[in-house]
Each structure stands twice: as C-alpha cells, then as structure tokens.
C-alpha cells in the first residue's frame, strides 16, 4: 500500500497541479466540446421532438471526443524529459502510475462534463425529468470505464511516433460497449416517462466493463511501461 496509494495520489495531484498552472488541456477540451455542441445544432435541427433523441448521444460524443484530446496529452507530457522513466525507477508499483493517471484523466473529463453538459441542456432547452441521481451515476460509471481503457491505451500509443493518430484507432473499437450501454442508459433515464429499472441491465453491463478493464489495466500496465 505504501508503494501504491501514496505514489498514485502524488502522480494524480502532480498532474492536476500542472494543469492548474497551464490550463492547456481542460481549456482545449472545453472549447472543443462547445464546438461539438454548436456543430450538432447546425447538423440536426433541434426541434422539440428531436432533442430528446439527440441529447444522450451528444453527451457521450462530447465525453468520448473531448476525452481523447485529454488522453493524448496524458502521457506525452511525461515523455519530453523521460519523466516516465523517473517514475519507473522510483519506488512505486507500476499499477500506481496507472491509478494516478486514471484519477487525473477522470478529473479532467469530469470538469469538462460539469461545464459542457449543463451548457448543452440550456442551449437545447432540455429539462432533465425526475431524478438527477441516476443520470449522474450513469455518467460516472460510463466515463470511468472509458478512462480506464483510454489511459491504458494512451500509454500504449505514446510509444509510437504517430501517437495522436494511433490512439483513436485503438480506443474506439474497444469502447463500443461503453458507448452503446451508456447512451442507451442515458436515453432511458432522460426519457419523459423514465422507468429506471430498464436502465439497470445497461448499468450492470457498464459496471462489468469497468471492473474488467480496471483490473486489466492494473495487471497489464507494467508490461506497457517496460523499457
């Protein structure tokens, strides 16, 4: 634990502090998600009926695309001066580097979601019916699964010279279950006649996915990190 939780938190805090200093990644992600919202409203005429069908998909398109921007940077910032090598020789479990990065990446995406999703709802004049709790839970579970796989694959793709191109190609096919399940669950929760029980099976699927890939990331990260 001593060589696991502490380094993980240190790395996460280091990333958050660095981001606080520069505000490069999150600001870019925010601008990007605002552009996605605007582009969507041009591409699909946001009339009353269409909105309800559109919102769940848009929420996850914003999360996934803005998330990829952040994931691309996540390990690139550790490569300039081989800082990642510094972490490998440090007395820290390789999985703690993974955990730290997952936490930091999750927080970045969370900040983007916290600003862009309310903005989306306001611009499309959409009222969330009923309980916010389930919606937020689905948002958390889906994003977590996406970040788990994304962080692992980001560490894979930075070892290529064309990492920005490689990451989406690696990541999208693997996150299809998350995209399908999260969009469906969000659709059910945000429907006017929402019946939560229908979303449960989707949420179970997301939880299984989260667990499988969090554990996989944990176990496989040391192999990705080797020099």
């Amino acid at each position: 634990m001593r060589y696991f939780i502490t380094p993980a938190l240190l790395i996460a805090l280091k990333d958050l502090y660095s981001e606080w200093r520069t505000r490069q990644v999150v600001v870019t992600m925010l601008i990007f998600s605002a552009l996605v919202i605007v582009t969507f409203s041009f591409a699909f005429d946001p009339t009353r009926q269409a909105v309800e069908a559109l919102i769940p998909g848009m929420i996850w398109v914003i999360t996934v695309f803005a998330g990829i921007l952040g994931l691309n940077r996540s390990f690139l910032s550790e490569q300039k001066q081989d800082q990642l090598h510094g972490m490998i020789v440090a007395p820290a479990d390789p999985a703690s580097i993974y955990l730290g990065k997952v936490i930091a990446n999750y927080v970045f995406v969370f900040v983007v979601q916290a600003i862009s999703i309310p903005l989306l709802l306001i611009l499309f004049d959409f009222q969330v019916p009923g309980d916010y709790g389930w919606f937020l839970l689905i948002l958390f579970l889906g994003t977590f699964g996406f970040i788990c796989v994304g962080t692992l694959l980001s560490a894979v793709s930075i070892q290529s010279k064309s990492s920005e191109m490689l990451l989406p190609v690696l990541l999208f096919p693997l996150v299809t279950p998350i995209v399908i399940a999260a969009v469906e669950a969000t659709r059910i929760v945000l429907a006017q006649d929402a019946s939560i029980s229908e979303a449960f099976s989707w949420m179970q699927l997301i939880v299984v996915y989260d667990l499988v890939f969090f554990v996989a990331g944990f176990l496989l990260f040391e192999y990705v990190l080797e020099v």
């Binding site: 660095s18 200093r21 910032s77 001066q81 800082q83 510094g86 440090a90």
Partner: peptide
C-alpha cells in the same frame, strides 16, 4: 529502489514546475 539515485540523459523534470 529507495536506495538508488539515478541521473539519466534526460532530466526527468517537469517544465511548468
């Protein structure tokens, strides 16, 4: 590992810190 100090070709330092 706690007992090893290592200076590499690269500085391992973070630019913005």
């Amino acid at each position: 590992k706690e007992k090893i100090g290592f200076l590499s070709h690269q500085s391992f330092l973070y630019d913005y810190f």
